[in-house]
């Protein structure tokens, strides 16, 4: 179970890194995003933060579930 959790976290982190890299490449080629004023970057950052918070809540719930199971034994 712990291994699974670590794996899902890892995939999440990797996808975020991949996302950042795509945008890093864009900005190196005189980014169209920068000319647009960059509001899309802000939106992506908000989405990442919200995803992180929800993942955190999800993991917290799993932790609580584990404690409940442990106590019921």
């Amino acid at each position: 179970m712990i291994r699974l959790q670590k794996k899902s976290l890892l995939t999440w982190l990797l996808s975020v890194i991949a996302l950042i890299q795509t945008f890093a490449q864009n900005s190196s080629t005189e980014g169209a995003l920068r000319r647009q004023g960059g509001i899309y970057i802000v939106i992506i950052i908000i989405a990442i933060i919200l995803t992180g918070l929800y993942v955190f809540l999800f993991l917290l719930e799993r932790k609580i579930k584990r404690i409940e199971k442990h106590l019921n034994k």
Partner: peptide, 13 residues
């Protein structure tokens, strides 16, 4: 999650 992400991002643009 979907509602919050959609509203918080679409709301900006």
């Amino acid at each position: 999650f979907l509602c919050v992400v959609i509203a918080y991002t679409v709301g900006l643009v």
